[in-house]
């Protein structure tokens, strides 16, 4: 597959997965790449973050058989323009949860989502990004298996590091038992501030994962303001430190 598939994953909530997904997707698009963001989080907040409404796109993407041209056309209709050059989205909503249950009942293989992505082979995407939900389930597992690269955002606090360890174990299990060929691109420390806990967490990360620890994203009010405005950091505060930090992340992605 020509497009590089990236999954943003961590089993813990509130670590900045959606913020990272949206800002990384937009930054890659600003650098000239064609990017498709697929929101697999039932909260459907990737669309909200881009100033759009959550929709059933992810549900139909996951549950439509794609066995006839009409079905293919139907699924592709859910690829929405975001109003930003090079960035498209398949929005999700609470129905994504139902899709997860359906996949479970139908006993779809772990390669299921990877196979679904063949739909976009000829659409010229350079990157396909999955924003995942903060839980352990069949959908996350299939999304991880579909990916070439996994980025694990981790808030710089003990609880997040603990969840990171669990996500890392999942990755190892996928490789050892399900033949996953992708790999972890890096751990993205988020909500980094000058507190002792934050610094200690960074030290822990660096001592265990050395060069796989990416440049941290500092805790910033501008990132929270983006939510209320429905803008990415590159639209809301392009000169800010946060924008620079997400640019550095995009630059790191381009090296893979």
């Amino acid at each position: 597959m020509a497009a590089k598939v990236i999954t943003i994953s961590n089993q813990k909530g509130g670590v900045g997965k959606t913020t990272t997904s949206v800002n990384l997707a937009h930054c890659l698009a600003l650098r000239g790449a064609q990017v498709l963001l697929i929101d697999l989080d039932p909260q459907g907040q990737s669309a909200t973050k881009l100033g759009m409404d959550g929709e059933m796109g992810a549900f139909y993407f996951l549950t439509t058989a794609q066995s006839s041209p009409a079905e293919v056309v139907f699924v592709k209709q859910w690829v929405r323009e975001t109003g930003r050059d090079g960035l498209k989205i398949i929005p999700g909503n609470s129905m994504t949860n139902s899709a997860q249950m359906i996949l479970g009942v139908q006993e779809r293989p772990v390669s299921y989502i990877r196979d679904l992505l063949k739909l976009f082979v000829r659409d010229g995407f350079d990157y396909i990004l999955f924003d995942t939900s903060p839980s352990v389930g069949g959908l996350q597992e299939r999304a991880l298996w579909a990916s070439d690269l996994v980025i694990i955002p981790t808030a710089t606090e003990f609880a997040s590091l603990d969840a990171l360890a669990k996500t890392a174990e999942t990755l190892r299990a996928l490789r050892d038992t399900k033949g996953w060929r992708g790999g972890m691109m890096g751990i993205l420390p988020t909500f980094f501030d000058g507190t002792r806990e934050s610094k200690n967490s960074m030290d822990d990360l660096q001592s265990e994962f050395s060069d796989k620890v990416l440049q941290p994203i500092h805790k910033a009010t501008v990132l929270r303001e983006c939510w209320s405005e429905g803008k990415t950091i590159f639209e809301h505060a392009p000169e800010s430190r946060s924008a620079e930090e997400y640019s550095a992340l995009a630059k790191a992605v381009l090296k893979y």
Binding site: A168, E169, R172, R175, W180, G183, M184, S210, K212, Y256
Partner: peptide
Amino acid sequence: KQPLDLIPVAARR
């Protein structure tokens, strides 16, 4: 090995 050695990591291009 260390945790990093136990999990699959992506290689740079």
